[in-house]
Each structure stands twice: as structure tokens, then as C-alpha cells.
Design a protein around this nucleic acid. Structure first.
Lengths: 170, 170
DNA sequence: GGTACCGTACTCGGATAAGCAATGTCCGAGTTCGTTGGG
DNA sequence: CCCAACGAACTCGGACATTGCTTATCCGAGTACGGTACC
């Protein structure tokens, strides 16, 4: 069982966008540079986040990606499902019906497979934890232990309020 | 994120062995036939269960596999980890340190990555549910909804107490 | 001077290869049982 | 008749192909901006 590493990338990217806190689109190339990631591949995951409605994309010059919702309304589960798919880890193939199961009456299979039931409840517990935490929560925790991080992010993307040469600095 | 389908196989096989409830070894080929599974591949997973100490194997004629512990002491987590590995789903690659993270002081990285912390707690919740349920619990649930299943299993493996031609029936 | 048009540069978006782990298969080492020959 | 040695069959155990999915990359469609020609 292994989660796609794109989930980790997506979470860090969304955290970075949450730090910027505005609606200026950020191109994928700059987002990739912010964490030293391969730009072409990150683009793929950004599209998945866009399709899931977590990011809004804008083509053309001055285009890029912005958060589609406030960070408080984006849970870690949203990100994980957007990138890794919403299917649970365990998929019951009903092998209880095969082999010796074929000689059992149909009423034995009316209820759900007991093994599957426990596995699904474990999956639900996993999702429940992820749904409880939002990107804003992560931002809060990091700001507590590393207050400098938010400033570094804003400076990297020319969002420093102290600099007057912001609009046309490229 | 996808769990190996071998986990499902292993759970059903262990459930079948729990129904037999004795110490007579059962060869892999018969276990495979009981659920219509490819024998050669099932053998691979049985070896994993054996290495993990959940099954004991015995070579030679009249050899096979037996439960190494009573079903009450085998949790679903034991089976999942034996077959799919004990590594968690999320693996933090510390990308917070790369890119813009390089310009942050070292003290920012003393604490664990906040994203990783939440993901690990979700994994812990998943494991906790699986650790709470044993093979014996599964057997109890199935016996409740499908009481015929245990008998079919015992008959398939010549464990029917009513038949006198048990010892030398082959 | 103002306005409309055009070319350019930059962006996302999806279609297209490469690598690797999970899946699936096979044959050899080891052990037990039945048989056979001898005492 | 009893015992010991031998051969054969059956089992697990690990080494060897193959498939599918994750990872990785590229180029094309579309858009906004800047410059230029015209009114």
C-alpha cells in the first residue's frame, strides 16, 4: 500500500498558495521551483487538483493557478482524493463466493462480506482523520514552529508588501 | 493508494483454517482450490504469512500449513502487514527543505513536518481499527449470518466428525 | 492623438514514452511414507 | 514374522518472466499583452 507521492507535492503546493493569500495566479513553473520539483510532472498533478475544483486555472500570460476556495475549506482528504483517486485501499472481489462458496445457499451472501466490512471501516477512519484537518490548520501549525516560512514564500513570489516595485517587477 | 489483493486472499485463507480448528496441515493446493485461486501465486503469499509467524509450514507428504496461533491472537493488521509490508501509506520526503526551504534557518526543521504528522496519525487510525479485529471476530460474524459455511469448509477438507473414514480416505 | 489590428510570448491541457513494483509461473531441496529385501 | 534400508511421491521454498500502473516528458491549443499602422 503506497500513496502517490503527488499527494505530498500537492499538499505543499496548496500550503504555499495559502501563504500568498491573494488571487494573483501563479504559474506552474514557479510553483515547481518553490520546492525544487520537476515542472512538467507537477503540472499533471495541478491539473488533477484543478479538475477536482480545488484550484482554478487561467491560461495565457499572467496566467497560472489560484486556490478555488479559502484554505479553511480545503481538507487533506480533498487533496488526497483529487490526486490519488477516491477509491478505497481495499477492494473486495467477493472471493467468498468462489470455490467452496458455490455450494452455499444465496442467503449466505445477502449481508456484506465481513472482511470487507472491517476493511471499509478502517478506510473510513483514515478518511475521517484527513477530513478533520484543513490546509489552514497546517498553515497554522507551521507558522507556530517556523514563522519565517510565510515571509520567505511571499518574497519568492514578489508578494512582499514593503516593496513598491511589485506590479511591473518582471 | 491500493492494497495488495493478496491481503484479501490471506484473510480468507486464514478464516478457512480457523474453521477447521485443528492442527492437521493443509497443503497450499487445497487452500487455493477452496477459493478458486491460482495455487502457484497463493503459495507466494502463504510464504509471506509463514515468514511473519502467522502460519507454520511443514514440508513433505502430509505437509502443508497450519495456524501458528489461535485465531483470537491474529489481528487483521498482522495479516495486512505480513503481506503488504509494514510501511505506512505516506512517506515524507522532506520536500519542505528543498527550494525556498533552503533559505530558512535550521531551527525551522527541528519539529516534524506538519503534513507528515497528520498523515501519520491517519495511518495510525487505520491500523488501530485493523488491530482491534481478529480472525476469530470475523469467524464469529460469518457464523452468525452464514452458519453453513463452517460445515462446508470442514467437509471440503475431510474434517467432518460424522464420517468414520477420515484418517485414510485418500 | 486615439483606436483597431496583428504578431509574439507565455500559459495550461492532454496525448505520449520509460521505469518499477506487483503479479504470475516455474523448478529444485527436503521430508515422509510405502515397499522390498534380508535376518 | 520382524526389521532396516531404499525408492518414490509429495510438500514447501525461492529464483525467474510478465503485466499494469506510477512516474516522467513533451508538444499543441488558447489567451493576454505590446507594438504598429491607420484614421
Amino acid at each position: 500500500m503506497k500513496l502517490s507521492e503527488g499527494v505530498e507535492w500537492g499538499l505543499h503546493i496548496l500550503l504555499t498558495l495559502a501563504w500568498l493569500g491573494d488571487q494573483e495566479p501563479v504559474p506552474a513553473a514557479k510553483l515547481a521551483a518553490s520546492h525544487d520539483l520537476p515542472a512538467a510532472y507537477l503540472n499533471k498533478h495541478l491539473q488533477a487538483l484543478s479538475r477536482a475544483g480545488l484550484l482554478t486555472s487561467q491560461p495565457g500570460p499572467r496566467g497560472g493557478f489560484t486556490l478555488a476556495r479559502p484554505p479553511e475549506q480545503i481538507s487533506l482528504l480533498d487533496v488526497a482524493e483529487a490526486i490519488d483517486g477516491s477509491q478505497g485501499a481495499f477492494r473486495c472481489s467477493e472471493i467468498r463466493r468462489r470455490g467452496m462458496g458455490e455450494s452455499l445457499p444465496a442467503r449466505c451472501f445477502e449481508g456484506p462480506c465481513a472482511i470487507n466490512a472491517v476493511m471499509q471501516s478502517a478506510d473510513a477512519a483514515w478518511r475521517e482523520v484527513l477530513a478533520r484537518h484543513s490546509i489552514a490548520d497546517i498553515r497554522g501549525t507551521v507558522d507556530e514552529h517556523a514563522p519565517e516560512a510565510a515571509g520567505v514564500a511571499r518574497r519568492l513570489f514578489d508578494r512582499d508588501p514593503g516593496s513598491a516595485s511589485r506590479s511591473r517587477s518582471r
